[in-house]
Amino acid sequence: MKSFFNYIAEIFSGVWTLLTGMKVTAKYFFTPWKNVTQQYPENRDTLVMYDRFRGEVIMPHNENNEHKCTGCGLCENACPNGSIEIISKSIVNEEGKKKRIIDQHIYHLGMCTFCNLCVRACPSDAIVMGQKFEHAHWDRSTFTKVLNQPGSKIMEGIKE
């Protein structure tokens, strides 16, 4: 007899606790403005990432198409995945001295883990982390990027 009452009591308390839970869900059901869902991708135009967001490695250029990279290769050494390759070339400058400058700063986005170690390693702050995050693409070859723009020069006054 006792177990029978327990059984009934359990059913009632089960229903009761179920209702307690449903009270919580009902609260959100009837106050939809409290919901937190973001309507991505409809909100793409207004979507702002945090300024420290690590989306990709980029090399900022100024209006004269100049960057700060000296081609020292420290970022290449710091990268754990080998996603940076520095190809440098030697040129003869106005004073007739030989000088090594950057030819191509190759960045393999597909191998990058966005760890920020290259940005930390760079002595002249030539590379920074960009905000773009929609990297999905049909073709893998587009993930290999050359960060210094064609025809770009190194900025004046960057120490080697």
Binding site: S3, N6, Y7, A9, E10, F12, S13, W16
Partner: peptide, 8 residues
Amino acid sequence: EIVGIVGK
């Protein structure tokens, strides 16, 4: 064991 009444 059958758990008792939690109650209000």
